[in-house]
Amino acid sequence: MDFLLDTQALTDFLSTSLRLSIPIIFAAVGGVLAERAGVFNISLEGCILAGAFGAAVGAFLSGTPVGGLFLGIAVAACAGMILAGLAVGLGINQLVAGIAINILMIGMTSYLARLILGADATSTLPGFHPIAIPGLSAIPVLGPVLFKQDFLTYLMYVTVPLAWWLLYKTPWGLNIRAIGDFPVAADSAGISVPGVRVACVMASCMLAGLGGCYLVLSQVFVFTEHMSAGKGFIALAALILGRWNPVGALLACVFFGLTDALQLRLQFNSPEVPYQLFSMVPFVASFLALVLFAGKVRPPSAIGKKYVRGGK
C-alpha cells in the first residue's frame, strides 16, 4: 500500500479508479431513474454493451468519436425501447424482459460487430482525448485526477447533479418518485404512469449506453465481445447501496472503482498469484456490500410490479 504515499503513484491509482468507475456511474444513475419509476432495469448490462457496440461502429464508420457517441446512444435507446415495450407495454415480468435483452445484446453485438467491423475489429478507433481544465488541473493529485479528463468524464460530472436535480427539484422528479412508490396515486392525479415509465426506461438505457460509449471511446478504443463484463450488474448493486439516489449511487460506484483499481494493482504487483483471485474482488465487494447493508434500505415500493389501472 506504499503507493498511497507517492504522489505520482497515488495520482495514477485514483485516476485509474475514476476511469474504472465512470461506466458504472452512468449505468447506475440510469438504473436509479428506472427503478425510481418502478421498473427494474436488469438490462443495464446489455445497454452498456449496446452503447459500446454502437460507439465502436459509429466511430469506425464516421471516423470521429462524436459519431460513435451518437450511434452508441441510439443503439442503447433501441434496447430501451424493447425493454419499455416488453415491461411497460406488455406488462411482462421486468426481470425476465431485462434478462432477455441482455442475452439478445450479447448475441447481436458479437454477430454484427464481426459483420461490420470484420477484420478491423482490433484496430484502434478514434476516441476522446483528455482536455486539461486550466487552473483546476494544477491542483496537486486531485487536479490531474479530476480535471485532466476527456469529454465523457466531464459529461458525467454534469449528469449526476442533473439527475439529482431532476429527481428532487422538478415536478417531473416528483412524478417519477410518486410512480415508483404508489402509481395509483400518480394516475389519479392525472399523470400517465406508462408514459413516465417509458421515458425513464429509455433515459436509463441511454445513460447505460453512455457508459458503454465511455468504454470504447475513452478507455480501450476497440470493441470486444461481451466487453461490459458484468459492469451493469455492479451498477445495480451500487444503486441499491446508494439508496436509489444518484449521488449515493455515484459514491458507491467510486467505491467499486477503487476496489477494481486496487485489484488491478495487486495483479500487477504479484504476478505469481493467479490473477483470477484478484479479478473477482469487485464482485466480492459488491456481494459483501449488498449483504451487509442492503437489508436496511427500502426500495421504491412499486418496483417490479406492472401497473394496471383499476387493478387493486
Binding site: 418518485r177 410518486a178 412508490d181 396515486a185
Partner: peptide, 19 residues
Amino acid sequence: HFMLVETLSVIENIVLGLP
C-alpha cells in the same frame, strides 16, 4: 382508499400532478 404517496410529504402530495 387514499391516493397518497406515503413516502412523500403533504405538500409534495398536493403538488403532485398539478399542471
